[in-house]
């Protein structure tokens, strides 16, 4: 896909929609399967293992969770369009090189019954191709979340060529009109809608990274069994055995944090923050460790572009940064643990 110059494959997404994945968090009344966050994490993990590029996280996890926090007819129709594959979404939050929604500066100025949005968003994952954008902006002191069509007048998208070859865009908003109806939730209360959506996305992204780590580890184990040097499989060398075994341990421990986050989001979403940040922090760490160890244990072939390890490595780097890096989530854990 990368070599064809594409960041996103509509056919792949269509087949995911046909399997019901787009509606995994959409209520049955809106045409979804409503299987919950733990199930969404299982899917995300598989996608991580196979490096599948799709708007699954942005649309089926983040946008669907945001829309579910709102109970009006408009939100219900939007959820139905997600489940049926008629709409994809991207979340436009970041404005600087680090994720931090509280520092949002982009302004939504009240005008008549609506708003005018001006400013710039960065690192909008899936933002180059999405049909709709969830946009976080400041209305006075407080934050408000908008649900806008991506082709609204005044929106210009600048697709970036990212190291992981996925869709990402910088998006400029030049006096973009938004109606009151396009506010998701209440004016000035973006976090009521956005917090659950972010946590769902962070957990699923952590699951994707865990799958990625497992993929990198699995590839590496196979190589250790096949590759011969000094007349024996290199996996017979204790130095490499211990590197691989340690990595497996890290993957197992992180997998527990992912399972726990999915369960907390399903059973006790009000108190899931610690579990989600723990999962994202651990997954960011483990995935990056897995790809670095993977390259080292593969030796020279791990450095070649023809080989998958490089794709794992580049995706791990991007995913570690998206929706809050290790430090961001470590601070959340620390706050709730008496630091």
């Amino acid at each position: 896909m990368r070599d064809a110059g594409k960041t996103y494959d509509p056919e792949l997404w269509k087949s995911m929609v046909d399997m019901g994945w787009a509606g995994i968090l959409v209520p049955e009344s809106a045409g979804g399967s409503d299987m919950g966050h733990a199930a969404a994490c299982v899917l995300a993990e598989e996608m991580g293992k196979t490096l599948a590029a799709s708007p699954f996280l942005s649309t089926a996890v983040i946008a669907a969770t945001a829309l579910r926090q709102v109970t009006d007819q408009r939100a219900s129709e939007a959820l139905a369009r997600i489940a049926s594959g008629d709409a994809t979404y991207a979340l436009a939050v970041d404005e600087s090189a680090k994720f931090d929604p509280a520092k949002t500066r982009m302004e939504a100025r009240a005008e008549g019954n609506g708003f005018r949005l001006s400013g710039q968003k960065k690192f909008v994952a899936d933002g180059g191709n999405a049909d709709r954008l969830l946009v976080l902006a400041r209305t006075g002191e407080d934050l408000t979340l908008f649900d806008l069509p991506a082709d609204r007048e005044g929106i210009s998208r600048d697709g970036k060529e990212m190291i992981d070859s996925r869709d990402s865009a910088d998006i400029r908003f030049n006096d973009v009109a938004a109606t009151g109806d396009e506010v998701l939730g209440q004016v000035g209360e973006a976090m009521a809608v956005l917090r659950p959506a972010l946590e769902a996305g962070q957990a699923a992204l952590a699951a994707e990274m865990t799958g990625l780590a497992a993929g990198a580890l699995g590839t590496t184990i196979e190589y250790l069994k096949e590759r011969k040097q000094f007349g024996v499989p290199i996996g017979a060398f204790q130095a490499l055995q211990h590197r691989a075994a340690h990595l497996w341990c890290e993957c197992e421990v992180t997998a527990s944090a992912i399972l726990h986050a999915g369960r907390m989001l399903d059973n006790d979403p009000e108190n899931a923050t610690l579990a989600v940040s723990l999962a994202k922090a651990r997954a960011s760490d483990t995935a990056q460790r897995a790809v670095q160890e993977g390259v080292q244990m593969h030796g020279g072939i791990g450095m070649t572009d023809a080989f998958d390890m490089g794709f794992y490595m580049k995706r791990a780097r991007v995913a570690a940064e998206w929706l809050g890096d290790y430090g961001y989530h470590a601070n959340i854990v620390a706050q709730s643990r008496g630091f």
Binding site: L224, K225, V232, G235, A236, Q241, A244, A245, W248
Partner: peptide, 10 residues
């Protein structure tokens, strides 16, 4: 772990 879980040789 290397031998019993990962199935590495030796």
């Amino acid at each position: 772990i290397a031998k019993r879980v990962l199935g590495l040789p030796g």
